[in-house]
Design a protein around this nucleic acid. Structure first.
Lengths: 261, 261
DNA sequence: TGCCATGTATCATTATATAATAAAAAATCC
DNA sequence: GGATTTTTTATTATATAATGATACATGGCA
């Protein structure tokens, strides 16, 4: 009874394992997994049958998971959305940027977004969906590999050379389309270009025929952590026109946002 | 040791108390509480110091709560938003309605929304923010008393007479502005009017000088549970013009949405 | 500077979650 | 359409893991 204490060394007494497991169950749900049975959950979370049963039941009883009486599968309830809402109120960047983004969306008549860098990925926190497109590009909270996005490239281009090199070489890339760039030297090139012109740019990386362009939002001190981004259809736009007609506007808006910290 | 088993009678063995407490901590964060210290959390959740300490620490370590090293206060992290995103993917209504709402937003040039009824409140699940307004009216996941909203009134007006009466008389009303209607007979009148004309309507109930109008989305079988809604400024619109120019459009869109179940 | 509120760390005690197992209910297959 | 597999639900003994009281540290504030 003294052999297996090396899983979690120090944080033991102020770490509630059951809660962590419960959160594992919660976050098993995402764009690919919208309704899950107990065995699905067990597989996805790595927890055993019994644990999943208790945790899912608890989340159901507390109103976080809807349980379909027919299929007996669980899916996210409205409380999920309220948690998202809580984030939006808590992030000062959202409040600052929202009015400017709405204005920008009206001016450009195209989809504009704000994205934050989180680790090696970017998360869209504001989306103004002026034009129709893939569902995933219209909802807040989506997470994409930074290196495949205009926002990610814009932000990586602001890192100091060493960090930039490491990011380009090691950050993971998830393939989204047949045009997703996997060649690290091409990514490096795109990042250098972003550094040169002050904005990141992608074509068809995440959605076919989508052109993305993003400008970093300056941070009072420290590196930028977010961007103002615009996505347009390559059916109606060319890269050159995007550079000429959209770039100046998103840069202007990005620079007009002064976020504390 | 046999006196206190009546708090939770049956669900005991498959109910994980720690998880429920952890969720209490999570949901302490909302539009009014964006950054909370341990004592704040203890007060809001009704848990004791130590419990909150352990739970908050766990949520911090698992990436759900950001902890400001300065103030040592916790606030929602990006994972909150990802949970919201998971909901949006899981709700078929969101996917069905999104393109139609974008189209409608473009046509009207005004803010359009989809709201769901949840208990005695409505929750906005899609928001197309075409025009500037209060921040709370631009983000998904917000929860308002059903009876003070055009969406809620539209949906209550679809209930059978007995349920309608009970809703109007007993559902709680949270005061949002100086114009929020507390008089139940006036609410009853508004609901009857909604029943008569097929859409709910509010003026300044939740935001001063805001006119709201909402049409129920029919359900295959059973009562409607959601609405297509539009909010406009009373500075630019009159109620009569809203009835004439907006009502037909939101009704048409609402009726074009066929959601299963 | 010294005080009070707030956050952090420790620990014995037992309640509480665990994982194994059995029973029931669906789904799947021939 | 009936038998077999898979998935879900329910039960229980056991010890782990959460508890809450307490003591300590820290920072804010007058």
């Amino acid at each position: 009874m003294s052999e297996k204490k090396e899983t979690r060394e120090k944080q033991d007494t102020l770490f509630v394992g059951s809660l962590e497991k419960g959160m594992r169950v919660l976050s098993a749900f995402n764009e690919h997994h919208t309704a899950l049975g107990l065995t699905d959950l067990a597989n996805l979370t790595g927890l055993d049958k019994s644990a999943v049963q208790r945790l899912a039941n608890t989340l159901h009883k507390t109103g976080y998971l809807h349980k379909d009486p027919e299929s007996r599968r669980y899916s996210p309830a409205l409380k999920f959305l309220e948690l998202g809402n809580a984030y939006l109120w808590a992030d000062p960047l959202v409040q600052l940027a929202m009015p400017k983004l709405i204005e920008l969306g009206r001016k450009l008549g195209e989809r504009v977004n704000v994205a934050r860098l989180d680790g090696t990925e970017i998360v869209y926190i504001i989306r103004i969906p002026t034009q129709l497109t893939a569902f995933g590009a219209m909802v807040a909270g989506r997470r994409l590999s930074a290196l495949t996005t205009s926002s990610g490239r814009a932000l990586v281009s602001c890192l100091d050379p060493a960090a930039r090199k490491e990011a380009v070489e090691t950050w993971p890339v998830r393939v989204m389309t047949s045009k997703t760039t996997l060649d690290r030297s091409k990514i490096a090139q795109a990042v250098e270009e972003a550094a040169a012109c002050g904005y990141g740019l992608t074509v068809s990386e995440n959605i076919i025929n989508e052109i993305g362009i993003a400008a970093p939002i300056p941070s009072e001190r420290g590196r930028p952590v977010a961007t103002v981004q615009c996505s347009v259809s390559a059916m109606r736009w060319t890269v050159d026109r995007v550079r000429e007609e959209i770039a100046p506007h998103i840069i202007e808006v990005a620079n007009s946002i002064h976020l504390p910290g």
